[in-house]
């Protein structure tokens, strides 16, 4: 096309608007990066130097990392968090999109009511839900179990909402063509509808995984057994054990960011590819 061969109008010239925008983005970036940088910085300091607020540590040391990684509890919490976040994410991807697909593509009495009911739970903050969850968990004997930590997040209203919006953009012809070709409804969802919404699935996977990886309040409440702690709960228990050991907390936190980065980098590809796929439709 001639479009792409034309030189970009703004190429080579820097407009004042750009400078303002970049400055704002740059400042925003600094504000967001600073705590992260201090986290890494502190994790490289020895206990005595924690309150020395220099960004580049005076005498950098890996001692904290060795200490944290050789402490069996940290490894356990890491595994707990990974396991829980992974299972909850998979569950959300599956159930949220199944519910969303049904709401988006099938006509049945009460469809709107069901959808509104699901949406309305989005308006209730977690803090208010914790008490009923806790009562439920204690009555059912789920306190101090993986299941207890996971059950509130296995299906989410947010995921249903997000996926429904995307399923609505899938042309009905795609589904009907599959129906005529003899696929059953589940196969149509799995083989046709889901692949067409991979960008949304990737976004949901990232949100859900991060949300569960960093979840603190509910796991703290529902667990008393140290071996069931998730990483955030475990790290905070570090903090209050004797005196607050900031260097160890920061080391744990630094280690905890690794999987989130990995998840993001992994799914990001699908988001980009999915966006390109969406352009082909029809």
């Amino acid at each position: 096309m001639s479009e792409s061969t034309k030189p970009l109008a703004s190429y080579g010239t820097i407009r004042p608007g750009r400078i303002v925008a970049w400055t704002i983005l740059f400042l925003g970036g600094i504000v967001m990066m600073t705590p992260l940088l201090f986290m890494f910085s502190t994790s490289l300091k020895s206990a005595g130097h924690v309150y020395d607020l220099r960004l580049i540590p005076d005498q950098p040391t890996l001692a904290n990392y060795i200490k944290v990684l050789s402490d069996g509890r940290f490894a356990r919490w890491f595994v707990n968090s990974t396991l829980i976040a992974t299972i909850v994410t998979l569950s959300c991807l599956f159930f949220d999109s199944l519910v969303a697909y049904t709401l988006a593509k099938f006509e049945f009495p009460g469809r709107r009511v069901v959808f509104l009911a699901i949406l309305s739970t989005l308006m209730i903050p977690t803090e208010m839900l914790v008490i009923p969850w806790y009562l439920m968990a204690s009555k059912l004997g789920w306190i101090d179990s993986y299941w207890g930590i996971m059950f509130p997040g296995l299906v989410t209203a947010f995921g249903v909402f997000l996926m429904k919006q995307f399923f609505e953009t899938v042309p009905n012809d795609f589904l009907e063509a599959a129906r005529v070709d003899g696929l059953n409804e589940f196969a149509i969802w799995w083989k046709v509808a889901l692949p067409l919404v991979t960008p949304a699935l990737s976004a949901l996977a990232i949100f859900t995984f991060l949300g569960n990886w960093t979840a603190f309040f509910w796991p703290l409440i529902v667990t008393t057994d140290q071996t069931l702690y998730t990483l955030p709960v475990g790290l905070s228990s570090f903090a209050v054990e004797q005196s607050i050991q900031w260097e160890l907390i920061m080391t744990g936190a630094a280690l905890a960011t690794i999987p989130t980065l990995a998840i993001f980098l992994f799914f990001q590809r699908y988001i980009v590819r999915g966006v390109m796929l969406a352009g082909v439709k029809g």
């Binding site: 042309p171 795609f174 009907e176 005529v180 070709d181 067409l196 796929l277």
Partner: peptide, 14 residues
Amino acid sequence: NIAMVFQNYAIYPH
């Protein structure tokens, strides 16, 4: 066992 061809093809981009 009927086959149908749609106006906008309905072939799968993926």
